[in-house]
Design a protein around this nucleic acid. Structure first.
Lengths: 221, 221
DNA sequence: ACCTGAACACCGTTCAAGT
DNA sequence: ACCTGAACACCGTTCAAGT
């Protein structure tokens, strides 16, 4: 990748950073390496981002934009929330290194704002007042970001772990002292390394059913 | 803090690192600064931790040990889970910088193992088989770590934000374009900066009620 | 207006040497 | 056995200078 004068832009930088993160992991994300990748002096990046944190926030928000791309909320509020969270999740899982870096951050940029708006709208349609909707939004958004961050971490770690020693992960649980950790020993076969998706789906459905239950009680009054 | 020959230990290092994180934030956690704080050459730390990652994992696990300290699970499985998650949460919130650094990590050390065991045991008492219990454990553990990481992030960020500009946070939501983000505008007064606790409690109760509902169905069969 | 290059004040980690 | 000190290969960021 080489860049002629005037071709550098915030969008281009973010896009290439995402590629670098995917290919080389978080260690690749230094101004010097990004500069080399773009065929540009490292300090040229400062024209587009005040500092590295700003760059990371921009990368994080670009993931949210990607999750929203082409999404049209439907009539069914549960389905809207479910699909939005699934979309976010799959973008994060596709860019686990970026997810780890950006997930915990509140970007307060366009992408995040649009997601907040969409969830709040779905909750309003479920019959919740703004105050209650705000609290439920926080629950859902935290659940979403949270699982993304954790599962991305598991994904990255298990990838590295697997490269070194296949199965080491579950082995460690299996080898847990039977007397000290009897429940872990019994559950060892079911505590697998990479089965994050069913856990997320279960958490999502549990949460949605609890919220739907609350909405019913509310609308009955 | 100065250290004579032979007084350095993994425990002591972890304890002092936690203090440094609390007082000075994550930027303080460099071998050079830790060494200075302990009155010891930075490279002396390598005798106790293979690298910085090992040190971070040890700090993360020490938080879990602290959360478990003195905890005795009772008969009521819901109450056991509730209290364990609240304990973890309050330790994380007391050390938000450490929580941010360590939360996403699976330490696979003593503290973590004991927490896994306790939750699995509570779920077994609720009547779940090991396979189902494992999945529910993952949901609960993720929920716990997840909220801790996020809320610690909010806490740290809002502290810094407040130092700069009190109220900037909620203002930004309030200033959101009414036409583009009508739901956010309506919810602005209810999207406050530091009210993480009610959100966590709500998430916890929603999840526990959904799990209890599942247990009832199961035990009825 | 946009990019460069040198410079500053840092990092983690290794390894031979000291006590 | 435990700690030190120099060295290596990096960092983010600033700022004056170039085109």
């Amino acid at each position: 990748m080489s860049t002629a004068r005037g071709t550098l832009s915030a969008d281009l930088i973010v896009r290439e950073c995402l590629k670098m993160l995917d290919d080389e992991g978080p260690a690749a994300l230094t101004f010097r390496r990004i500069g080399k990748h773009l065929g540009v002096d490292p300090t040229a990046l400062y024209r587009h981002f005040r500092n590295k944190d700003e760059l990371i926030l921009a990368i994080a928000d670009s993931l949210m934009e990607e999750a929203l791309d082409g999404f049209v909320p439907g009539e069914d509020w549960m389905q809207t929330i479910r699909e939005l969270l699934r979309r976010s999740r799959s973008v994060y899982m596709a860019h686990p290194h970026a997810a780890i870096i950006g997930t915990i951050r509140v970007t307060r940029r366009e992408g995040e704002m649009r997601i907040v708006e969409t969830i709040l709208d779905a909750l309003a349609k479920a019959g919740f007042e703004p105050a209650e909707a705000s609290r439920l939004y926080r629950v859902l958004d935290d659940l979403n970001l949270a699982f993304a961050g954790l599962d991305a971490g598991f994904r990255v770690m298990s990838a590295e772990q697997q490269a070194k020693d296949v199965g080491a992960w579950s082995k460690e649980y299996a080898l847990a002292d039977q007397r000290e950790f009897p429940r872990i020993a019994a559950a060892a076969p079911y505590l697998p390394d990479i089965e994050e998706d069913p856990t997320f789906e279960l958490a999502l459905e549990l949460m949605l059913s609890a919220i739907a239950h609350r909405a019913e009680q509310l609308n009955r009054r």
